[in-house]
Nucleic acid binder design. Structure first.
Length: 297
DNA sequence: CTCCAGGCGCCTT
DNA sequence: AAGGCGCATGGA
């Protein structure tokens, strides 16, 4: 005889009322790499908690494997309390941004753990998002701590700590398919583990100083630093310029002309307004959606 | 098969 | 300062 009450008792549940929150766009827009869709819901690990997110019409239903008293970790991660309207209203009113907002309405920026974000984006260079996901998953399975998930699920793991990854030798990391990025990740793990760069302190710095500190880490340049500034610390002026955004800016604003990276950075720093990070994420996701639909048609 | 991917570090001019 | 190149690995 089924006993659903047992499951209900053993798991935490909470419903978050939301407006204009596109959970799928948010979790598949290349900010975070561990979310998996199952039966129309999104399952993943935040810190040391497994969680399932079910998106309703005007709410998100969260279910954990263990009881939860304080849900701040989740509302903070999802940025539930952010009012999207003034952000969208601050975007430039050009055709490109209008199309992006139209196609990606409800896309949000997450607030992720700095170490997981940093490590993940060190692994991201010249990799497709599907491959980044695969590498991160291997890393977590092999070096992350087990976390409790639902009984019928595959084992779930936390993202490995910097301390743990610092103990790995390069061959163990390379075995997770990360290739030439292995020495960068190991060096970064060392620097974080020994507090040569104190990730928690970067929150209090001006964006420029935080960026410089991140760029001092091997394998971290301007683009990856901007990703961490934006996706982990919420510096909304950060504007990561990758190949997709370069393509978008050239096609939409520079009549397809060859433009130097420095020029694109200067343009984006002024043109997109106070929430340029959000604008960037809309452009990025829009370009990828557009590419995918063009290819499938 | 070739081309390219949420780049970076290093070596040339 | 600015430009070119190699780097592992696998998807398209």
């Amino acid at each position: 005889m089924p006993q659903p009450s047992l499951i209900a008792d053993a798991s935490g549940q909470k419903r978050f009322p939301v407006q204009d929150y596109n959970l799928t766009a948010t979790l598949t827009s290349g900010q975070a790499f561990r979310w998996q869709c199952r039966d129309g819901a999104w399952e993943g690990v935040i810190g040391t908690r497994w969680v399932r997110l079910d998106s309703g019409l005007d709410s998100i239903l969260a279910a954990t494997a263990e009881p939860v008293e304080n849900w701040d970790w989740l509302s903070d991660y999802l940025q539930i309390d952010v009012d999207l309207a003034p952000i969208l209203a601050a975007f430039p009113r050009d055709d490109a941004m209008r199309s992006a907002v139209d196609k990606c309405r409800g896309l949000r920026l997450l607030r992720q753990d700095p170490w997981e974000c940093l490590a993940s984006f060190i692994l991201s260079s010249t990799k497709q998002i599907v491959q980044i996901r695969q590498i991160v998953e291997l890393l977590c399975e092999r070096f992350g701590e087990r976390v409790i998930s639902l009984p019928d699920r595959a084992h779930a793991y936390a993202f490995p700590t910097a301390e743990r990854l610092a103990q790995c030798d390069e061959a163990e990391l390379r075995a997770c398919k990360m290739g030439f990025r292995a020495p960068y990740l190991k060096a970064a793990a060392n620097m974080i583990a020994c507090q040569e760069v104190a990730l928690e302190k970067l929150r209090e710095l001006p964006a420029g100083q935080a960026r410089d500190a991140l760029i001092s880490i091997p394998g971290v340049g301007r683009k990856i630093a901007d990703c961490v500034l934006l996706f982990a610390y919420g510096f909304q002026s950060a504007f990561p310029v990758d190949v997709w955004v370069t393509k978008a800016l050239r096609e939409l604003y520079f009549r397809r002309r060859r433009i130097k990276l420095k020029r694109l950075q200067q343009f984006s720093a002024t043109y997109f307004g106070p929430f340029s990070g959000y604008a960037q994420q809309y452009l990025f996701h829009y370009m990828r959606l557009h590419q995918r639909s063009a290819h499938n048609s």
